[in-house]
Design a binder for these strands. Structure first.
Lengths: 95, 95
DNA sequence: GCAAATAAGTTTGCGTTGCAAACTAAAAGC
DNA sequence: GCTTTTAGTTTGCAACGCAAACTTATTTGC
């Protein structure tokens, strides 16, 4: 019943949950939705990527760079597992 | 939808959940149940107390010192709020 | 056309914190 | 009476989240 530290950070958990509900989302969408600073968001995404929980796709929208993210299968699984663990902890209350 | 950092630490969340299910629990019970080191547990309890989330009662069981903990009302409320926030994040998935 | 402002990220630096190991103090065993 | 065990507390360090500074490219104002 150990927690995944990568996911167990509020900002990253929210990011993962958002990504789990859509095909993909780009930097600005996450930025405005979550109200983080750019620096913060960047670091979180980097961390999630280094865990292979998401895939980063860089492209250009017109002439502007655009970075887009989507959950990997590994990320999906880790997220599901995370919620399971949390539910287990929640049940500690009914002891 | 901000998270309570005091509670949002796996060990402390578990502690709070356990305490929410019983009147009170002592140091050794938590120690064996959670499989933490003594030092760790001590620090977590200290932190929870300094947030007034629990009350510490020191007494003697026979001749041995015994430290016992119980959730305060403030702690109970914070814990309930914590789960509410988490549920809100969970719903981000159905976007 | 070039200087200033905006956009889209990344990198750096710092303060906080969780964790393990070392320490303390008292009781029990031999 | 000395060693071991019990019950914690304190200390030190490595990792991490966050904000601010920096980078690179683009658009806009004059």
């Amino acid at each position: 019943m150990k927690f995944d530290k990568i996911i167990h950070e509020p900002a990253r958990l929210k990011i993962m949950m958002i990504l789990s509900g859509v095909e993909q989302a780009d930097f600005n969408f996450l930025l405005t939705t979550l109200a983080l600073t750019r620096g913060n968001l960047s670091r979180h995404m980097e961390k999630l990527e280094s865990a292979s929980y998401l895939k980063i796709s860089k492209s250009f929208k017109g002439k502007m760079p655009n970075t887009s993210y989507q959950l990997t299968q590994k990320g999906s699984k880790a997220l599901a597992q995370y919620w399971e663990n949390l539910d287990a902890v929640r049940r500690l209350g009914q002891a």
